[in-house]
Amino acid sequence: MSEATDQLTTTILAVILVLLFFGVLFLVMLAYYNYRRRQTAREKKEMRAVFDQQLMQARLEIQEQTFTYLSEEIHDNVGQLLSLVKIQLSTLEESSVLDLDLVRETKENAAKAFRDLLSLAKGLHTGHIRSQSILLSVEQEAQRVSKAASLEISITTDGEEKKLSEENQLILFRIIQECLQNCFKHAEASFVNIGFTWYSDNLRVRIRDDGKGFDVDRALAGHSGLGLNNILNRARLTGGSADIKSRPGEGTVVTIQVGY
């Protein structure tokens, strides 16, 4: 009887100890789970802060580039036209007879300067870019660039157009704008194709030119790669990616993928 009682006592104690063990284990596991959860939340917060900082930096860079671009456009394009208008007006002023052809030409030049200014303003206005579809913004920009740089630009689309988030739309537009500038400033291209492919969860934009091409790795490593790095970083900021493929003499293909 005593042995049986001892066995029972041991069994009860063992069960209690097992339950106690599981209780403590449960608490430890919860505490560990919570620790990991908090750690992940902290890391996410830090990543968010870094991302915000990068976004801010990208915005500043975009702003800076926009100013440079604006200054160059006014100087090279509108400025030239207005100088020409001024010379034409001076010629008219000095001339004793009214040259109607010159007046018409001056008027056309003034109108062209005005149109270029309007087009420039449209391309720069952030609210304008955000409010309309990316396709329309790119079409307008393409028209403007093709006129200014005598560059043939074609736009092709595949799939049903979807709305991008405002932030992503603006960043993507600036990337495309930068690519187009590269095409006529550095690549000496005569033809550019911008292809939009709308997938279910992301948009792929492929910008292909027939320019002189370059060594991508060398360009990215050197000082001249600043603009290319900007393209890659900005694409990353949208949560997407960018890929630049080029070889000397073979043109350039920039592929950007952006989520909606």
């Binding site: 919860l30 505490a31 789970y33 919570n34 620790y35 959860r37 908090r38 939340a41």
Partner: peptide, 10 residues
């Protein structure tokens, strides 16, 4: 454990 994710911890 699931909800608490502030700095103080469980």
């Amino acid at each position: 454990a699931v909800r608490k994710d502030d700095e103080s911890g469980l």
